[in-house]
Amino acid sequence: MFEARLAQGALLKKVVEAIKDLIEDANFDCNSSGFSLQAMDSSHVSLVALSLRADGFEHYRCDRNVSMGMKLASLSKILKCANGDDAITMKSEDNGDTITFMFESPEQERLSEFDLKLMDIDSEHLGIPDNEYDATVKLPAAEFQRIVKDLSTIGDTVEISVTKDAVKFGTTGDIGNANIMCRQNKAADKPDESTEIDINEAVSLTFALRYLNSFAKATPLSTHAVLKLSKELPILVEYHIPEVGRLAFYLAPKIED
């Protein structure tokens, strides 16, 4: 059987809220090392990779590898019934056709159980190489969210250019154009507000803002978003979930015809 208890149930709520508009349904893969998901959006432009480590759970048991297909909208409906401070336990029997979500309030005076029907999902699993990237930018998650939101009011795509000291986000649209530059800033007294740039080579790539806006729904999960870029490769936008794992998004670049 599979059973996993997450004391901070809110994390699971936030993860599902972050991906449910990008992905309709997906297989959640459980094995002894943890709980993970890999899925492409319906247009096959982006890829979501979630991994929650077994040791990030308060209790974790997975007797055999299982892949549980779920409709994200249904999962979201159920998780919305959990309070933000509830612990969430997921349970499923081997070869079962449902997964049970149990919500426990902090004082355990309220216990609720919701069963979600599992579904068979035929999904293509991609092999993601562990790339060295030309540039890595770690910036406050809320700042990244604001940048992609603001630029979306002007244009549909963003050119992200990283140099040694700064990252520049630029867009062009019918009404004009916009550029936002963030300088490296390693303020030791305010680590949550730091912007750090690690660069092997200057890089400049163009991406659809619609997807970056969607990725930014993961903002509540982490203080920072980490952007990793290499010439002509998909951008990796990572949100580290402290002590539990990470939620990563890959987005294929736009190329000039």
């Binding site: 096959h44 432009v45 991609l126 659809a208 190329i255």
Partner: peptide, 14 residues
């Protein structure tokens, strides 16, 4: 004009 690449063209099937 620019063209959107497909994500699976980078990572391929595993």
């Amino acid at each position: 004009s620019s063209r959107q690449r497909d994500i699976s063209s980078f990572f391929g099937g595993a």
